[in-house]
Amino acid sequence: MTIKETLKLNRTFEFVIIAIMLILATYFLIPLYLMIVNSLKPLSEIRGGNMLALPIEASLDHWKTAWSSAQIGVQPIGLRPYFINSIKMVIPSVIISTVMGSFSGFVLAKWRFKGDEILFGLILFGCFIPFQIVLIPTAKVLGTLHLAGSVQGLILVHSVYGLGFTTLFFRNAYKTIPSEMIQAAQIDGASFMYIFNRIILPLSTPVFVVSIIWQTTNIWNDFLFGASFGGAASQPLTVALNNLVSSSTGVKEYNVHFAGALLAALPTLIIYFVSGKYFVRGLTSGSVKG
């Protein structure tokens, strides 16, 4: 049974709902539509015509240019090499922050000790720190660790600043697991790791999905840290994209810019489209039960 069935809504009402949803969908799709259409047009058409009009001479050339031959810095190499940099950075950071979040979330949800609430509050408040103010001190720490300008440095920074959110997700999800289950296991003499491994992890798939999606999108789209702590060989995709689109002087090739922008957004878009269902399921399974 759903709310809808209970309410026994009539046809007109249902039609109104669909109409509202379609109007909202238009609002949501306009920017995407605009980018796709204009990435296929030649520059002259973009300058002269209606920006919502379909291309007269559609071509995928600008996509190819953005991918492999656009000028990024002194070399015409396109965005391709930076994709690899981003992947090298995103995968380890997502794994580290998610694993650490699941441990600390579990402990904060199910272990009682003095100051546990305050600790959770402190970790949560960390989500709100504006990243602009941590740039200089973080640089100092990375310099001391000899990690400046390296992928490893970026991984460290992204893992750390993701902890607040991953801890929140896991702690909230684990709150919904009945404590009796854990107590029973404890009485049977199960150790911490055994409980985590055998009882908690099998129930965690949905919240892992939520955490991984959230972290992947945030880290993939991050610009500030990538620009500040990435070296010549580890600059992520967003930095390259920024270099492509925000050159100060010279002709702006909007079609190439849009094509590049869409390319850069593809991985996260695919994740959202493919796993959206699991995402909602993961949140439903408990991570919003504050």
Partner: peptide, 11 residues
């Protein structure tokens, strides 16, 4: 100088 003419000039 990341794109177009100036990047080429720097090259």
């Amino acid at each position: 100088w990341t794109s177009g003419g100036e990047a080429a000039a720097l090259n």
